[in-house]
Amino acid sequence: MLIPCPWCGERDELEFSYGGEAGVPYPADPAALTDGEWAAYLFVRANPKGPFRERWVHAHGCRRWFDLTRDTATHEILG
């Protein structure tokens, strides 16, 4: 898989580490959450077959985090 790093361009997937689902922000006030809401933040993530917004870090390159959309069935990177 070739991953387009926004800073370095397309690079082999070996240079990257995976960060799971994107758009799951750290809660602004964890203390205000119920146990259930906190557990959902900690443990529950989407796992779709198809397009998936996810986080990557160019660990063996510029070390920057970024989001991209990948089709989990075909590994096609959609943007």
Binding site: S17, V57, W65
Partner: peptide, 11 residues
């Protein structure tokens, strides 16, 4: 180091 960087950059 990666852990510190991740929090700094993403949150």
């Amino acid at each position: 180091l990666a852990w510190m960087e991740e929090w700094l950059q993403t949150e």
